[in-house]
Design a protein around this nucleic acid. Structure first.
Lengths: 134, 134
DNA sequence: CTGCATCCTTAATGATACTG
DNA sequence: CAGTATCATTAAGGATGCAG
């Protein structure tokens, strides 16, 4: 007979599932896109190369920490390239790689979907919220 | 002369930007997709209607709380429909709406991108990590 | 200018137990 | 079966100060 509790079983299942999700490329990508700043950085860079501080200004309200963190993650994934010009003061340019540009295209698809269907979503929300209030 | 500190200015900028982002359909959509469970629920439902507990089993390791929360959010956005059959015991079916199906299609596009380019990303990561170690 | 290390606060997540 | 309410935990985000 099983002496495992529901909690134990779920925990085990979760562990397995987490492992699976970590391996799943789709989910890794979604994780990236989900990052609040990634889409903004990619969008900003899609218009051309930019310096670190330019990105900081363009993406208002980002802290240096998050900007660096985001750029590092994108660089690691081969989505942006980082070019250091050892002048004084130092100058660092970031640019989308071809792979990054391809991701930007995907982001455009997401954007198109959002703009195409947003009105439906908004209407659905209104309906839902009114029913709840009634 | 400006007596505002960098922090104050950034805070203001962030407030404005946050307001803008909340209005931005694309970002709202990305927020949805970013939700860990949304993609899983949509994927599960894309194969057909499912009952609450079926979803719970299919998506291993999800707690009732998160499952309900996710379903409510999707329902509010008009992406899934909720059908209660007042039998004993009660039976509740969830199903993708046409709008939800269209979102599932978008998710497929994301999945395709991920599968197409994942090898490149993996290679980039390896390169990056090795350089760091060297 | 660019970026890293640190600390701190908040918000999301998950476990649990109970109700219609 | 389907879902809600509560509580504990943790992980992400952000501010700050300093260094190369």
């Amino acid at each position: 007979m099983a002496t495992t509790t529901a909690a134990q079983r779920r925990e085990q299942a979760r562990a397995d599932y987490d492992a699976f999700l970590r391996e799943c490329p789709t989910n890794q990508l979604l994780g990236r896109l989900s990052d609040k700043w990634v889409s903004l950085v990619v969008a900003a860079l899609s218009t051309g190369p930019m310096r670190y501080s330019d990105l900081g200004r363009r993406i208002a309200g980002v802290s240096p920490k998050m900007l660096t963190q985001t750029l590092r993650a994108l660089e690691r994934d081969g989505l942006v390239s980082r070019t250091v010009t050892p002048s004084v003061p130092v100058r660092v340019d970031y640019e989308l790689t071809p792979l990054g540009a391809s991701l930007a295209a995907l982001l455009t698809a997401v954007k198109d979907w959002a703009e195409t269907h947003f009105e439906e979503v908004r209407a659905a929300r209104e309906r839902y919220d009114e029913e709840g209030a009634a």
